[in-house]
Simulated assay, not measured.
Amino acid sequence: MRRLGELETAIMDVLWAASAPLTVRAVLGSLSRDPEPAYTTVMTVLDNLHRKDIVTRERTGRAWAYRPALGRDEFDAEAMASVLESSADRGATLLRFIGKIGPEELARLRSLMDEASE
């Protein structure tokens, strides 16, 4: 799983915040970007996200309505796992990651690891 681009991330943020599937027009109306992207740009990005299985879609009248295939936490976990899988040296990658997180996050990670091993 590759990282999302800037517009993909903005669109996914809109979809993750929504309580129901959204049409292209609804996504476009919820984006706060200047300049506002074109309708066809948002439609293309959503179609690409669908082809990558990042969103699902269903017909709503004549339009498609989109929703995330995974919750934000699940998506982020998949992205992190993908980085580890592509690493030539997982231990070195993990060590660098741990070196970049703060003391509170490190303590939380230790606590989660302890819980997982019980």
Rank of each mutant, 00 (worst) to 15 (best):
R2D: 15
R2H: 15
R3Q: 13
R3N: 11
E6A: 15
E6T: 12
T9A: 05
T9N: 07
A10C: 00
L15R: 10
A18I: 05
A20F: 15
A20C: 14
P21W: 02
T23P: 07
T23F: 00
V27W: 01
V27L: 05
V27S: 00
L28A: 02
S30P: 06
S30Q: 04
S30I: 02
S32V: 15
R33W: 02
D34N: 13
P35R: 04
P35E: 01
P35D: 08
E36Q: 15
Y39V: 06
T40G: 02
V42H: 04
V42Y: 09
T44F: 10
V45A: 05
N48I: 10
D53S: 09
D53M: 08
D53N: 08
I54T: 15
T56E: 02
R57P: 05
E58S: 03
T60E: 07
T60S: 01
G61M: 07
A63L: 11
A63R: 14
W64N: 09
R67F: 01
R67T: 09
R67Q: 06
P68S: 06
P68L: 11
P68Y: 11
A69C: 02
G71A: 09
G71P: 13
G71I: 10
G71S: 13
G71V: 12
D73M: 03
D73Q: 13
E74W: 03
E74N: 12
F75Y: 04
F75R: 08
F75I: 10
D76I: 14
A77F: 12
A77P: 13
A77S: 09
A77D: 10
A79D: 10
M80W: 09
A81R: 13
S82W: 05
V83M: 00
V83N: 07
E85W: 14
S86Q: 03
A88N: 08
A88R: 15
A88Q: 15
R90T: 11
G91M: 11
A92P: 05
T93A: 03
T93D: 12
L94F: 11
F97A: 08
I98H: 03
I98D: 00
G99M: 05
K100A: 14
I101P: 03
I101D: 01
P103S: 15
E105M: 00
L106W: 06
L106D: 08
A107D: 00
L109Q: 12
L109T: 13
L109I: 14
R110C: 13
L112W: 09
M113G: 08
M113A: 02
M113V: 07
E115N: 14
A116G: 03
S117W: 08
E118N: 14
